[in-house]
Amino acid sequence: MSQDQEIYRRIADAGIVLRAPAKPAAAYVPFVETGKLLFLSGHIARREGLVWEGQLGRDMETATGTQAARAIAQDLLGTLHAATGNLAKIRRIVKVLCLVNSTSAFTEHHLVANGCSELLEEIFGDAGKHARSAFGVAQLPTGTCVEVELVAELF
């Protein structure tokens, strides 16, 4: 099985349907390619097509935030596919930045971010392992619980 077939098989096995990038809500584009790097704008958590609102430590548990981050990873895959036309063109996921809408007492941002990171590794294997930052913020656009941006290296 070729590398691109393997990636898309893993996506299908995970029950993921690749969606087109969401229309930007402000003055930006979903992705920018420069050299061999592909920068994806922040993707917010959505559930059943609607903004997944909430604040970790107030009205949302860590496990739910982790699910939201995994849902974002699925949307990131759709944007990566739209940007490249074939996910096998991705050499590796370089960096993930995870912003968590949380109270000042919440300290499990890293566990929330795992929802995204683990899915990227599941789909891309070792090429999905990446550097990462995860931290809390007082609020995110439209009240979403999590936002993630990503940098990938292309072949």
Rank of each mutant, 00 (worst) to 15 (best):
P30G: 00
H110W: 11
I90V: 10
C116I: 09
K89Q: 11
T62E: 05
S104Y: 14
N86R: 15
I90R: 02
G54L: 01
L37N: 03
L18S: 04
Y28V: 07
D13V: 15
I11C: 13
L87Q: 08
P24F: 13
T107F: 08
E118T: 13
A73E: 01
K23R: 02
P24C: 06
I11L: 10
Q67I: 09
I7H: 02
A105K: 14
Y8A: 04
E118I: 05
E121S: 13
Q3C: 09
V100M: 07
V51H: 02
T79N: 09
L99T: 03
S102H: 09
Q3E: 13
C98L: 02
A71K: 04
I44P: 00
L77W: 02
L50I: 04
Q74S: 10
G42C: 03
Q74V: 03
A71I: 07
N114V: 03
G15P: 15
Y28N: 03
A83T: 15
Y28A: 11
G35P: 00
L77Q: 06
L76Y: 00
T107G: 11
I72E: 06
L120N: 01
I11D: 04
L80F: 10
L111W: 09
I90S: 05
V94D: 03
L50W: 02
T103G: 07
N101W: 06
D4L: 02
H81R: 01
H81W: 10
I16W: 10
K89A: 14
I16H: 08
L77I: 11
D4W: 09
L80A: 06
P30I: 01
E6P: 07
G78I: 11
E48D: 07
I93Y: 11
R10T: 06
V112C: 08
L97R: 11
D59K: 14
V100I: 12
T79I: 04
I93G: 07
R19K: 03
R92T: 12
G78C: 02
Q5K: 13
G35I: 04
S102V: 15
R92G: 10
N101M: 12
D4K: 11
L40I: 15
L97C: 05
T103C: 13
M60I: 00
V29Y: 04
E121W: 15
E108N: 05
A69L: 05
E118P: 14
R9P: 07
R92I: 03
A113E: 07
L80K: 13
T84L: 05
Q74N: 09
L80D: 06
G54R: 13
E53C: 12
L87A: 05
R10C: 14
I7N: 09
R10W: 14
E6V: 04
D59L: 12
V112A: 09
E53L: 11
G57Y: 15
H109F: 14
T84K: 08
A113R: 05
V112L: 12
A63I: 03
K23W: 00
F31N: 03
A69S: 04
E108I: 10
A73V: 03
E121V: 02
Y8W: 01
I90N: 09
A27R: 07
I11P: 08
H81F: 08
K23H: 02
I7G: 08
I7L: 12
Q5Y: 10
R46K: 05
R92E: 01
R70L: 01
V96T: 10
L119D: 01
G42P: 02
I90M: 06
E121F: 08
